[in-house]
Amino acid sequence: MKIKNNYFTIAFLFITGLSACSKNETAAELNVTKGMLSDKTWYLDYSVTNNVTKSYVGQTTYFINFLKNGQTKDSDGIIGYYAIQKPTNILQLYVNASTISGAPANYTYAIESVGVQNLILSYTKNGAKTQLYYSTK
């Protein structure tokens, strides 16, 4: 009987051990997002406001870099730090930077979609939503 109980205990521990994985889903999501975003130059290809699409493909366009160490700099000379967080159900990109003249340039974008080659950010200003479509070229 005791041996049988031991077998049950071992089987229970084995199954529990397999099932109990550490589930820090948000941390994993933030990590993957940062991995996809960082150490690349993102070029703005399109912007969409109120269903009106502007294309910048084939033109000298705005670009932004996100480095692994948390620094960011863009083609306008804005340099600072960025962070990715998920305070609600939406991933957000916070940029805390300053212009060449030293004026603060802080903004927050929603990350609608992120991949290895494509990034869609959005923000709402005066009730109008603007989506920014970036690619790595």
Binding site: L91, I111, V114, G115, V116, Q117, N118
Partner: peptide
């Protein structure tokens, strides 16, 4: 999800 993967890859 917020991730996109190009299916050609």
């Amino acid at each position: 999800s917020a991730f996109n993967y190009n299916l050609s890859n």
